[in-house]
């Protein structure tokens, strides 16, 4: 078995997309790791749907305050200039186009940029949380996910078979095998995990990938 990128490396690659001064929301699960991985020299303002703007790293065990949590229920560190607000104001920010980037996990992403990240067969009681609001409202949606399911089924698909979160919303997909840009012409394979070939990644992808002319290894 060839090595794939681990979750921290996927999050590190996604965090490289955050420009200086960006307002960024991190979804449930793997995206939360990005809080600790902002490239040096850049100031990023993290917005959390539960009503907080401008928080810092995930808190160390000895510094955990359970009234200072992100949307993944993880305690985070306070930073100077941070602020709190209620859920209605938080989603005004989210729907109203005031969030530059959201990083979300996914079960599936389609070649048109449709996102499926909240429901799956056999679990009718799970919900989307703020996922639909974020996918619709953020200026740019980045997905971090594993390239295939535990059974080896592709997650980058022609059409989503899982319940849709929002249509035509994803801009960039970062997986343990590749970085893929969603364009009007289709999916462009921008970067690839070390040791993998485009053909090998395509074999694990249902949708067609167009290797970029300047395709590189994943750069961190």
């Amino acid at each position: 078995m060839k090595a794939r990128l681990d979750e921290s490396t996927i999050a590190l690659r996604a965090a490289r997309e955050f420009p200086d001064g960006a307002v960024v929301n991190l979804g449930y699960g793997m995206p939360g790791l990005c809080a600790n991985l902002v490239p040096g020299g850049r100031a990023v303002y993290f917005q959390s749907e539960n009503g907080m703007l401008g928080y810092g790293n995930l808190a160390a065990d000895e510094a955990k305050d359970y009234e200072m949590i992100n949307a993944s229920d993880q305690p985070v560190v306070a930073l100077p200039g941070m602020c709190f607000f209620d859920s209605a104001a938080s989603f005004d920010m989210i729907r109203g186009g005031h969030i530059d980037i959201v990083v979300l996990g996914a079960y599936q992403v389609s070649e048109k940029g449709d996102l499926a990240n909240w429901g799956r067969p056999g679990r009718p009681a799970t919900g989307m949380g703020g996922g639909m609001d974020l996918a619709v409202g953020a200026k740019r949606v980045i997905v971090t996910m594993l390239h295939t399911t535990k059974k080896g089924e592709p997650r980058v698909v022609k059409r989503c078979t899982y319940p849709i979160t929002a249509r035509h919303c994803v801009s960039l997909i970062v997986t343990d095998l590749a970085v893929i840009e969603v364009t009007g012409e289709g999916l462009v394979l921008r970067e690839i995990a070390p040791g993998w070939t485009p053909a090998e990644v395509q074999d694990l992808t249902e949708a067609r990938l167009m290797p970029a002319d300047d395709l590189t290894e994943v750069t961190l």
């Binding site: 749907e49 209620d86 859920s87 209605a88 938080s90 989603f91 989210i94 729907r95 919900g127 989307m128 949380g129 703020g130 996922g131 639909m132 609001d133 409202g137």
Partner: peptide, 8 residues
């Protein structure tokens, strides 16, 4: 099931 912002 209601999206969180819609719920608020």
């Amino acid at each position: 099931i209601v999206p969180q912002g819609t719920l608020a």
